[in-house]
């Protein structure tokens, strides 16, 4: 057998076996949303601006410190556009899975903190693996605005 033929036989054989092993798994049931650029910042460093630009919000603290399957507890900090803390607001928090079309039966309870502009939201129930939108509605006087915090649950 010539060396060229032998080379092709070896190459073909290896490719066949590599393919056989690589295809052992079949339909994947896993969404990797961990690198989704729309995910909310849980480092406490950055502020998000509400849809109409009325308010600013950051996640000041989170327990667990990254979103986790099940109940989470978040401390949110709200300010107006000048950066002044906003305490006299009605804040509603609703987790929702846009790709599935459902929320969760566990309601998020919002409690004002003693620190101006801060609110403790717990439990933020993100029970199912996948991408969650945590939808916030902020009412301050006559102003109503919305912010969405995206969270990825690996499961």
């Amino acid at each position: 057998m010539s060396s060229a033929v032998l080379r092709w036989v070896c190459l073909g054989l290896c490719s066949l076996v590599l393919c056989a092993c690589a295809s052992a798994g079949t339909t994947q049931a896993s969404l990797d949303c961990t690198e989704d650029p729309s995910l909310a910042d849980f480092s406490g460093q950055s502020w998000a601006t509400s849809g109409a630009g009325t308010f600013k919000l950051r996640i000041a603290a989170a327990s667990p410190n990254t979103p986790t399957k099940g109940d989470n507890s978040w401390t949110l900090e709200l300010s107006d556009v000048t950066g002044a803390p906003l305490s006299d607001v009605n804040l509603q928090v609703t987790p929702f899975m846009p790709q599935h079309g459902h929320g969760t039966g566990v309601k998020a309870i919002v409690t004002p903190s003693v620190e101006p502009g801060r609110f403790v939201v717990t439990p933020v129930n993100l029970w199912m693996p996948g991408l969650w939108e945590v939808r916030l509605t902020v009412e301050h006087g006559a102003a109503v605005d919305h912010i969405v915090l995206n969270a990825c649950i690996e499961g």
């Binding site: 994947q28 790709q99 599935h100």
Partner: peptide, 21 residues
């Protein structure tokens, strides 16, 4: 269900919910 789907955004096996990772 939508969880038995080739679409990764909705696909979830039994273990994804009943065996928390």
């Amino acid at each position: 269900t939508i969880f038995n789907s080739p679409e990764p955004a909705t696909a979830l096996s039994c273990g994804k919910c009943h065996m928390t990772g």
